[in-house]
Design a protein around this nucleic acid. Structure first.
Length: 634
RNA sequence: GGACCUGUGGUGCAGCUCGGAGUGCACGCCGGCCUGUCAAGCCGGAGGUCGCGGGUUCAAAUCCCGUCAGGUCCGCCA
């Protein structure tokens, strides 16, 4: 036996021979020349020369696509060779006069067949380097058509665009095209890596109910009517939040679950309608730092197994208020600088310009952003900025610094002295050729319009390194926020978070000044997760809910399980729940969640493939004690 | 709840601003030719409620109103 010129990189997964096949198409190599083989698969392409017929036969997506490589390299699941479309194809050749020729020449693409034949070497000039099997082909001796395909709604083999509606309606064909299913294989690798890692860190995987009670806080619930109890409903969980806290009370040290979450809310590109998955974690006797360490370890394991991107750790921590001030958002993309400068102290009260002069007295901040090379932008660009600021109740203005140092332009150039202009430019870090945008408004939101410009510039100027995953922690979220309509206080995030300073902080401070042990993990401008050190003390919980206008009785009624459980020795605990779909979308550079989900809903929460939701029979309704009341026509 | 973009043979698009015969491109499909292609090639052909309804007009794919579908965003998402 000659030395194998093309050894497999991983131990082959066995393929027990049966009546359909004894080899995978993509496994054939020069070493197989002379073998009699039986293959099965889809007709990927047909090239009929009349006197000679070529067929590309394609395997189903096999273990090569989703088993980790022996060397642990990311390419194991994603590289061009293993698992890739072109690694699953072999060329069949068929000569005229045979029965097989007659059958095959009539067969349409994506039909399914089983063929028998002999592996032959290709003439050197016809070797195809694009195929893993390109050195050989199979000379067909017999063929059995297993199913024949109709004319396709869109091409399966070709890398062409298909409309979103067609892709969703014929999802199985879209999946068969390759990239999607290869992504699913990689997603399976992600969950495998996460499970293995978390188990090794002492996390116990526990499944929690999908049929549970409606919770009064948060998003709209999906409800399930009860047959046994007329007029009563289960709800699908928006997250296993209360269950995981109950598991802490149950004495479990560390819990995790790849948890389905259901929220009846409007969708976005990065927010799927209906349902999504979280890597849900909770730890007993844990601090914020403990949670951060575990998440950084988990993400580091996931990132190194799935991509070549850099993810610097430990992740920088930004206070919520600072993130808002410096980046104008609570989910900053920190892959590039372009930070907003606070120039209140430098300009406020020191110029003749009332907008700036009066700011400190009103408690307003003056913020500035240098837009690189923007001095020559059209008036409309500056107007769009000041318009978006005005919409937020913020005064926006600007200054243009021509590259040649000639006369400055923009509203501020006429109202500030040369010295003040120099102060502003230097504080913002602007040079000739740049423009300085300014905003004046209440500190929490004063930078928001500048943050929007910063994001747009980052994209436009290509400032963000696409090979970088810049994770960061946003910490110290406010516990409460003012409800503009009622004037009362609402929980700004999770009502079960522990206020920093505990009960004393709730008693002493203005509710607007109380910060919680509440944190987000953000990456490249995308919010991946929220988490918190939980409030496990009934008296603190009672006080927090009182500030938000909940009576003790109402808390007890709304959250009976936690309320009661916390009377019997709850340990301090903390957790987080990174969004699995969104994390994977980020790792894969996908523009929306449909690209990382096998069977996604359309934007309006309709399932175009299965036809859900759909009416049910009157009998079904009657059994559930339900009556449909059509919406009133306007 | 709101705003915007898109909808044209089976597929992807152009045509729409400035109304004038269903006009065009690429792919697919059907038929013919073809022994080394690999997204085969060449020749021929079929295939249309221009999403749907209404309006303006001598005349609407094109302009206006409504509606449906897909997408993006705002609100919403403790």
């Amino acid at each position: 036996m000659p030395e194998d010129p093309d050894p497999p990189t991983t131990p082959p997964v066995p393929l027990p021979p049966n009546r359909y096949r004894d080899r995978r198409c993509g496994s054939l190599r020069a070493r197989d020349i002379g073998s009699e083989v039986r293959l099965a698969g889809w007709v990927a392409a047909k090239r009929d020369h009349g006197g000679l017929l070529f067929i590309d036969l394609r395997d189903p997506v096999g273990p090569d696509a989703y088993l980790p490589a022996a060397d642990g390299s990311p390419d194991g699941a994603t590289g061009l060779q293993r698992g890739h479309h072109n690694a699953r194809i072999v060329q069949l050749v068929c000569h005229p006069g045979s029965e097989a020729f007659e059958v095959l020449s009539r067969l349409r693409p994506e039909s399914v067949m089983s063929v028998a034949g002999r592996v032959v070497g290709r003439p050197p000039e016809t070797v195809n380097p694009k195929l893993a099997t390109g050195a050989v082909e199979v000379d067909v001796s017999s063929v059995e058509v297993l199913s024949s395909a109709d004319v396709l709604p869109f091409p399966v083999e070709r890398d062409s665009d298909a409309g979103e509606e067609a892709r969703l309606t014929y999802r199985y064909l879209d999946l068969r095209r390759g990239p999607l299913v290869e992504r699913l294989a990689k997603r399976a690798l992600l969950t495998q890596v996460a499970r293995r890692h978390l188990a090794s860190r002492g996390f116990l995987e526990v499944q929690t109910p999908v049929l549970t009670a409606s919770s009064p806080e948060g998003a709209r619930d999906y409800l399930v009517p009860s047959r046994l109890y007329p007029g009563e409903f289960y709800a699908l969980p928006q997250a296993p939040q209360q269950f995981k806290q109950l598991l802490m009370v149950s004495g479990i040290e560390r819990y995790f679950q790849i948890a389905p979450c259901f929220r009846d809310e409007a969708s976005r590109a990065d927010r799927s309608p209906g349902e999504f998955y979280q890597i849900d974690l909770e730890m007993a006797f844990a601090t914020q730092d403990d949670v951060f360490r575990e998440v950084e370890l988990l993400f580091s394991e996931v990132v190194s197994n799935l991509t070549h991107k850099h993810a610097p750790a430990p992740y920088p921590r930004l206070r919520y208020a600072d993130a808002l001030a410096r980046y104008g958002t609570d989910k900053p993309d920190i892959r590039f600088g372009l930070e907003v400068a606070d120039v209140t102290a430098k300009l406020g009260g020191r110029t003749e310009l009332p907008m700036f002069t009066e700011a400190p007295a009103k408690g307003h901040a003056v913020r500035a952003l240098s837009a690189p090379g923007a001095a020559g932008r059209p008036r409309s660009w500056f107007d769009a900025f000041s318009e978006s600021a005005r919409a937020l109740g913020i005064a926006g203005s600007w200054l243009q610094l021509p590259p040649d140092g000639s006369e400055k332009k923009g509203p501020l150039s006429r109202k500030l002295t040369e010295e003040e202009i120099a102060t502003l430019a230097s504080a913002a870090g602007a040079s000739p050729g740049d423009a300085v945008l300014t905003c004046v408004g209440p500190p929490p939101s004063a930078s928001v319009p500048l943050g929007q410009v910063r994001s747009a510039l980052g994209l436009e100027l290509g400032l963000a390194d696409p090979e970088m995953l810049a994770f960061c922690w946003i910490v110290d979220f406010p516990m409460f926020e003012k409800n503009p309509e009622t004037g009362g206080w609402d929980f700004s995030h999770n009502p079960f978070s522990m206020p920093q300073g505990g009960l004393q902080a709730l008693l002493d401070k203005d509710p607007g000044d109380v910060v919680a042990y509440q944190y987000d993990v953000v990456c490249n401008g995308l919010e991946l997760s929220s988490g918190a050190v939980r409030n496990h003390l009934p008296e603190v919980m009672e006080r927090a809910f009182a500030i938000a206008g909940y009576s003790r009785e109402r808390v007890a009624r709304s959250f009976p399980a936690l309320w009661n459980a916390f009377r019997y020795g709850p340990p301090p605990h903390a957790g987080i729940a990174p969004g699995l779909d969104r994390l994977f979308m980020l790792l894969e550079d996908q523009p929306n969640l449909r690209e990382v989900i096998a069977f996604p809903l359309a934007q309006n929460a309709r399932d175009l493939l299965m036809g859900a939701p759909a009416p049910v029979t009157p009998e079904q309704l009657a059994e559930l004690h339900l009556q449909v009341v059509p919406p009133k026509k306007v």
